[in-house]
Design a protein around this nucleic acid. Structure first.
Length: 216
DNA sequence: GACTCTAACTCATCATCCTT
DNA sequence: AAGGATGATGAGTTAGAGTC
């Protein structure tokens, strides 16, 4: 199992012992968006073997990063949620996301986008300085996944689902959205090439590309 | 029946040991 | 030093158990 220790009195080694196993950090990523049931986690990570998910949750719980909570009746379902110690990983996960996004390239044929991964991508790419004084709601549809981002004077609220009354709804493939955020294509170029479909105030697409940046 | 696991098995990878 | 055999470990697949 995952009691492998690096034998080093080092914070990085200790962190890797807790969240360095395969899938562990992606479970944390999804729980940073919202608490989830076992089945929700499985749906968000369709390639994780079920025994590995169970093992990782057990390890994260043992390490004090994740807690189990039984919902009140009639549901009675078990949900997994991050503890305060687990939530403390948010900055680390976002920084890792920023770093990894620089190497994203084009989406591979077998790669999917999930609502949680998209929400965390928006959070990690958000530029508070660029959004200072701005106020706008975006709905983003990538493949079948819909998330939204509410920008309000340098603050971001990103979550799963639609945003009724959004100032701008953007629809496009994952590669196009990433290219927009990375400045590999211009907003005008994306529209002219028909790579994105917009609804609402189309001029806000340029602002979206300023608010959410992938640096390379 | 849905949810939340657990167990048994196979497969791949890696480290170690032994032989040449 | 190089290469093969072997064992340990973890990941992945599948089936099914326990609980509600």
């Amino acid at each position: 199992m995952t009691n492998r220790a690096y034998g080093q009195f080092c914070g990085i080694a200790r962190a890797l012992e807790m969240v360095g196993e395969r899938w562990a950090l992606l479970i944390v990523r999804d729980l940073l968006v919202s608490p989830k049931r076992y089945t929700d986690l499985r749906n968000g990570l369709p390639k994780i073997p079920t025994n590995i998910l169970a093992a990782r949750l057990r390890e994260l719980e043992r390490n004090g990063l994740v807690g189990r909570r039984v919902l009140p009746r009639p549901s009675g379902a078990v949900v997994y949620e991050l503890t305060e110690h687990g939530y403390a990983l948010e900055d680390v996960v976002l920084a890792l996301g920023r770093w990894g996004a620089e190497s994203l390239g084009e989406p591979r044929p077998d790669e999917i986008v999930t609502a949680d991964s998209l929400v965390m991508a928006l959070r990690s790419a958000f530029e508070p300085e660029a959004a200072a004084g701005a106020r706008a709601g975006f709905e983003l549809r990538v493949d079948e996944v819909v998330v939204h981002a509410w920008v309000d004077d340098g603050m971001l609220l990103a979550a799963e689902g639609t945003l009724p009354g959004a100032d701008l709804a953007i629809e496009g493939g994952p590669g196009v959205v990433k290219a927009l955020m990375a400045g590999e294509i211009t907003p005008d170029g994306a529209v002219e090439a028909g790579l994105v479909k917009l609804a609402g105030n189309e001029r806000l697409l340029a602002r979206f590309a300023e608010f959410f940046r992938i640096h390379g």
